[in-house]
């Protein structure tokens, strides 16, 4: 699963899906994840990086990660 190729993201956390016309705003952590997804990083690499740089325990990260990916899928931003 990866971020759709044509998704536009901006520095201050805005996302634009040109194929649907939908816009989204992301909070800073979400924006950071999206940026890394855009660079083509794998889920596990991104998660490892988050554990390194944020004050978060692995269980909480897993729970939040699943919900976030779910949100992206529902927002039609991911492709298989």
């Amino acid at each position: 699963m990866y971020l759709r190729k044509n998704i536009a993201t901006s520095e201050n956390g805005f996302i634009f899906n040109p194929s649907t016309g939908d816009s989204f705003s992301a909070n800073p952590v979400a924006a950071a994840i999206l940026e890394q997804l855009k660079q083509g990083m794998t889920f596990s690499d991104i998660k490892a990086g988050l554990l390194d740089s944020y004050e978060v325990d692995p269980l909480r990260l897993e729970r939040d990660w699943d919900e976030f990916i779910n949100q992206l899928r529902e927002a039609n931003l991911l492709a298989d």
């Binding site: 805005f14 989204f24 992301a26 952590v29 994840i33 978060v56 990660w65 927002a75």
Partner: peptide, 14 residues
């Protein structure tokens, strides 16, 4: 010093 975590979320802009 690690950064404060917050659950990642996106919100649709209507």
């Amino acid at each position: 010093m690690k950064k404060t975590w917050q659950s990642p979320v996106i919100q649709k802009m209507n």
